[in-house]
């Protein structure tokens, strides 16, 4: 086989990821972000490490020391998850870490709920679905996990969801955001039908769409559509809505990259 000399490779390709890698390790970066409170710190650290049992142990220790379970959701679990999402957004940790942390956080929320009669408040409701006829749901699962990790109450309708079922759910739940994912060109057409039926009912909820064959040009063809190129855009779109940007044109201005 022909071969390249070591010194010739840089002229053929550049491993930018190696060249630009940050000096700080993920653990060191996380350590800098953990809250200092000695009861909250172990919860946040266990969330970052994705250790469900450690999260529960740390929560129980905090409850034993007098913290209210309902407060620990926002003050400890969400803070720990905030560390994780910040590190992910900065490119320091990878998606599987976020997924494992999200599992640990949700487990922690259930534990806190089991210890109180108070009902936690979410940042807002988001309805997620995969287009009718489409069963490819890993993208939707990532979107749902990232939204939950960001503190949203996710109504997950699953995959291959009939248009009318989406309309019904939006009518009932009144979410701040609807998301739709699709892999195939022929199934993503359902998004346009959903858009039309929502408008017929006078519902103007932002409809974030993305996935395989979905592109910005297609999503821009229907009034409620906001294109999300990556799963990580979903919580950012929701955050923008919570912060007051509900106008579709303004959301497109912010999130349409092409």
């Amino acid at each position: 086989m022909l071969d390249l000399k070591l010194e010739d490779i840089d002229g053929i390709l550049v491993r930018y990821n190696v060249a630009l890698e940050k000096e700080m390790t993920p653990d060191e970066a996380a350590e800098e972000l953990y809250p200092k409170d000695e009861l909250i710190y172990p919860v946040a650290k266990a969330i970052y490490e994705g250790e469900e049992d450690d999260v529960v142990d740390a929560l129980q220790a905090a409850i034993d020391a007098g913290k209210k379970p309902i407060d620990l959701i926002d003050d400890a679990l969400m803070v720990g998850m905030g560390v994780v999402t910040q590190l992910y957004d900065e490119g320091i940790i990878f998606l599987p870490n976020v997924m494992m942390s999200a599992d640990a956080m949700l487990n922690g929320i259930e534990y806190c709920k089991s210890k109180t009669t108070d009902v936690p408040e979410s940042k807002g409701k988001v309805v997620c679905h995969v287009a009718e006829g489409d069963v490819h749901d890993i993208g939707k699962n990532i979107v749902a996990a990232l939204l939950r990790a960001a503190g949203y109450d996710v109504i997950d309708l699953g995959r291959d969801v009939p248009v009318d079922e989406v309309i019904q759910a939006v009518t009932k739940e009144k979410p701040i955001l609807l998301t739709g994912t699709a892999l195939m060109t022929t199934t993503m057409y359902a998004f346009k039908e959903i858009n039309d039926k929502l408008l017929e009912k006078g519902i103007k909820v932002p409809f974030a769409c993305g996935g395989g064959a979905v592109n910005q040009d297609f999503v821009s063809q229907y009034d409620l559509g906001v294109y999300g190129e990556e799963a990580a855009d979903a919580p950012k779109i929701a955050d923008a809505i919570v912060a007051g940007t509900t106008d579709i044109a303004a959301l497109r201005e912010e999130f349409h990259k092409h």
């Binding site: 491993r15 990878f94 998606l95």
Partner: peptide, 16 residues
């Protein structure tokens, strides 16, 4: 291919 697509390009941070 799901793994390859999640892994993405050199600078993506979704999967090693």
């Amino acid at each position: 291919n799901t793994a390859m697509f999640i892994a993405g390009g050199l600078l993506d941070k979704n999967l090693a």
